[in-house]
Design a protein around this nucleic acid. Structure first.
Lengths: 219, 219
DNA sequence: GCGGTAAACGGACCGTGGTCCGCATACTTT
DNA sequence: AAAGTATGCGGACCACGGTCCGTTTACCGC
């Protein structure tokens, strides 16, 4: 990336470009950035459509940036300018469902959203997350960044702060650390490994989650 | 890799080449494979020396396979033939301390090795592992495979089976699942994130480990 | 020593992610 | 409407991991 390259955020048509403060789609921080140029917006949607098509055809793990560019009749540089990198493009593809998922526990109805007791919300949050991961497994897996950046993407951060908040509310010990413990149980790569390579049914992971929450919150 | 490429295992001089059954240096399985040719063994040590030098000079994250080949005055193909891939080379660099670490809890003296009660061994194991990770952070981080293979390398498998065995002995619930929970607390990437990016002292992670073991093993 | 053979070698080659920079063009201002 | 400017565009270019395959060479049996 050359300088202040803005790796995109969301919206399809009259869009804007993420202001690159600290994170991208943490949800409500769609703000005051200058509107995208018309050609840029057009290319953006063409790229997303092309990418979605290619993913559907060949699977996210075989998606190449050059193929997307070609399929959208656009230069390769344009893809990178818009989405930053491969992970950014994949994430953009997930943006819509990611939003729904985030809203469901941030502002949705209890017991998932605010209003229920914290332990109850923890239980529901894990179940909802496991289902979210399972539904988008391939894409999330393909978008997973390199090891040392695993905890940086805003969605992961949001999950961590959410868990930490609920744990604090429930009065557990080192909430930040325990949040990581819980979060690691809600990891796509782990889910993939356990269900695909080790043949565990999703139900076992769900039961494991409830058990884990119980063990961790009874201090 | 072309076919039954043997991604190397250990020993320096009259060596052998891993038989590729299921795992590499799970420790005692150095066996009955045909001995390495003299030139192969020589190149192996030259490569390891060159790699170690380059890592020391520029850090493991800047190590390129071509640079290693050149520094060892060897063809690039030879590097891949010997070590399989970049991760294999990095792992080979760690092989010695990995062995010491593994022996310490498999056959070493209690309370880390056999002989102490399981919960005690769990506590010690975590502390020893955290120190091991911290000592080799950069190298382990650079060797970390892609997300979807994160649980496949034999060292990780060994940790998981060890944890599961101790948990079973301690009578916890779903030992295999809980082993993953504990193992995720002993993850280089997590350690890196918490200590480097979030500024937590190692002591806090150690305390967190003891707390976690306590919470998980009191059924 | 002398072949025969399997193993090892080397480096050209390929695919892919990511960058660079000169050129084109959508919006703004007057 | 013309000029000015920042934004975006494109695709040549680079670095690196990994593969392929024709050539070389260590080892084994004689």
């Amino acid at each position: 990336m050359t300088a202040i390259a803005p790796p995109d955020d969301e919206q399809g048509h009259p869009g804007q470009t993420a202001g690159r403060t600290a994170g991208q789609p943490l949800l409500p921080l769609a703000g005051q950035t200058p509107p995208m140029r018309a050609d840029a917006a057009r290319n953006r949607t063409r790229l997303l459509e092309a990418a979605a098509r290619l993913v559907a055809e060949r699977g996210p793990e075989h998606l190449t940036m050059e193929a997307v560019a070609a399929a959208a009749s656009v230069g390769k540089g344009t893809v990178f300018r818009r989405f930053g990198d491969r992970g950014g493009l994949l994430m953009a593809l997930l943006d819509h469902s990611e939003r729904l998922y985030q809203e469901s526990f941030l502002t949705g109805p209890p017991p998932l959203g605010p209003g229920a007791p914290p332990v109850r919300r923890l239980e529901e949050f894990g179940l909802a997350t496991l289902r979210h991961l399972a539904a988008h497994r391939a894409l999330l897996l393909a978008a997973e960044p390199e090891a040392c950046r695993r905890f940086e993407p805003p969605p992961r951060r949001l999950v961590l702060t959410h868990l930490a908040a609920l744990l604090r509310e429930a009065g557990a010990g080192d909430a930040e650390l325990l949040a990581h413990t819980l979060a690691s149980h809600l990891d796509v790569a782990l889910l993939h490994h356990l269900t695909q390579r080790r043949g565990m049914p999703l139900e076992r992971l769900e039961a494991g989650w409830l058990d884990l929450v119980a063990r961790i919150t009874r201090a």
